[in-house]
Amino acid sequence: MDKHQYRSYWRANTTLIRNLLIIWALVSLVFSILLVQPLNAVRFFGVPLGFWMAQQGSILIFVGLIFTYAFQMDKLDRKYNHKK
């Protein structure tokens, strides 16, 4: 891998990580803490949405972020022919 490809690979990698961390922060801080009271006005499967997000929803989203990262990094590795 030449220098340009190497930089492009790491730029794409850090962009992916940044975007996933933004989603993580939104879910964990905004939806699960700051907006709990307004979200509690909405019912989700018979439970207040704010409570559900804080207890179950955030965990499910975090697991989804892990799988998204693994899938996207596999695509990046193949695109840039990055050897592990």
Rank of each mutant, 00 (worst) to 15 (best):
residue 65 L to N: 02
residue 78 R to W: 12
residue 77 D to M: 09
residue 23 I to H: 08
residue 84 K to S: 02
residue 5 Q to K: 15
residue 56 Q to P: 00
residue 18 R to L: 10
residue 18 R to V: 00
residue 68 T to F: 12
residue 18 R to P: 00
residue 11 R to M: 07
residue 77 D to T: 05
residue 37 Q to M: 03
residue 46 G to F: 05
residue 79 K to Y: 13
residue 28 S to W: 09
residue 17 I to Y: 15
residue 64 G to L: 03
residue 39 L to M: 13
residue 82 H to V: 00
residue 24 W to T: 01
residue 20 L to T: 04
residue 11 R to H: 12
residue 71 F to N: 09
residue 27 V to Q: 08
residue 16 L to P: 06
residue 9 Y to N: 09
residue 64 G to H: 04
residue 61 I to C: 12
residue 57 G to D: 02
residue 30 V to D: 05
residue 20 L to F: 10
residue 57 G to M: 02
residue 63 V to N: 08
residue 73 M to A: 11
residue 28 S to V: 01
residue 67 F to E: 07
residue 13 N to W: 14
residue 77 D to R: 15
residue 5 Q to R: 15
residue 26 L to P: 02
residue 48 P to C: 02
residue 15 T to V: 05
residue 34 L to H: 05
residue 21 L to W: 15
residue 61 I to F: 09
residue 1 M to P: 13
residue 62 F to C: 03
residue 21 L to M: 14
residue 32 S to L: 02
residue 67 F to R: 10
residue 58 S to A: 11
residue 47 V to N: 04
residue 33 I to Y: 12
residue 36 V to C: 01
residue 24 W to S: 05
residue 69 Y to R: 12
residue 61 I to P: 08
residue 24 W to R: 11
residue 34 L to V: 01
residue 32 S to Y: 07
residue 50 G to W: 01
residue 54 A to R: 10
residue 32 S to P: 03
residue 65 L to S: 01
residue 34 L to M: 09
residue 26 L to E: 03
residue 62 F to A: 07
residue 61 I to S: 03
residue 72 Q to Y: 13
residue 74 D to G: 13
residue 5 Q to C: 01
residue 15 T to Y: 11
residue 43 R to S: 10
residue 79 K to R: 14
residue 84 K to E: 00
residue 79 K to L: 09
residue 12 A to M: 07
residue 55 Q to I: 05
residue 6 Y to V: 06
residue 15 T to H: 07
residue 36 V to M: 08
residue 38 P to A: 02
residue 59 I to H: 14
residue 66 I to D: 00
residue 4 H to C: 11
residue 51 F to K: 13
residue 78 R to E: 09
residue 49 L to N: 03
residue 1 M to K: 15
residue 45 F to C: 04
residue 25 A to W: 14
residue 5 Q to P: 02
residue 63 V to T: 10
residue 39 L to A: 04
residue 18 R to I: 02
residue 12 A to C: 08
residue 2 D to S: 12
residue 48 P to A: 02
residue 33 I to N: 07
residue 16 L to I: 05
residue 20 L to M: 11
residue 29 L to R: 10
residue 3 K to S: 09
residue 13 N to C: 09
residue 15 T to I: 05
residue 60 L to D: 06
residue 67 F to S: 06
residue 80 Y to D: 03
residue 71 F to P: 05
residue 84 K to F: 01
residue 21 L to K: 15
residue 9 Y to C: 05
residue 63 V to A: 12
residue 51 F to W: 13
residue 24 W to I: 00
residue 45 F to H: 12
residue 44 F to E: 02
residue 59 I to E: 05
residue 52 W to Q: 00
residue 81 N to F: 09
residue 11 R to K: 14
residue 83 K to M: 00
residue 28 S to M: 10
residue 14 T to S: 14
residue 73 M to S: 10
residue 69 Y to K: 10
residue 59 I to V: 14
residue 23 I to E: 04
residue 49 L to F: 07
residue 53 M to R: 02
residue 20 L to W: 12
residue 79 K to S: 01
residue 3 K to E: 13
residue 66 I to M: 09
residue 4 H to S: 13
residue 46 G to A: 06
residue 29 L to Y: 07
residue 75 K to G: 03
residue 16 L to C: 06
residue 25 A to R: 14
residue 74 D to P: 05
residue 42 V to H: 14
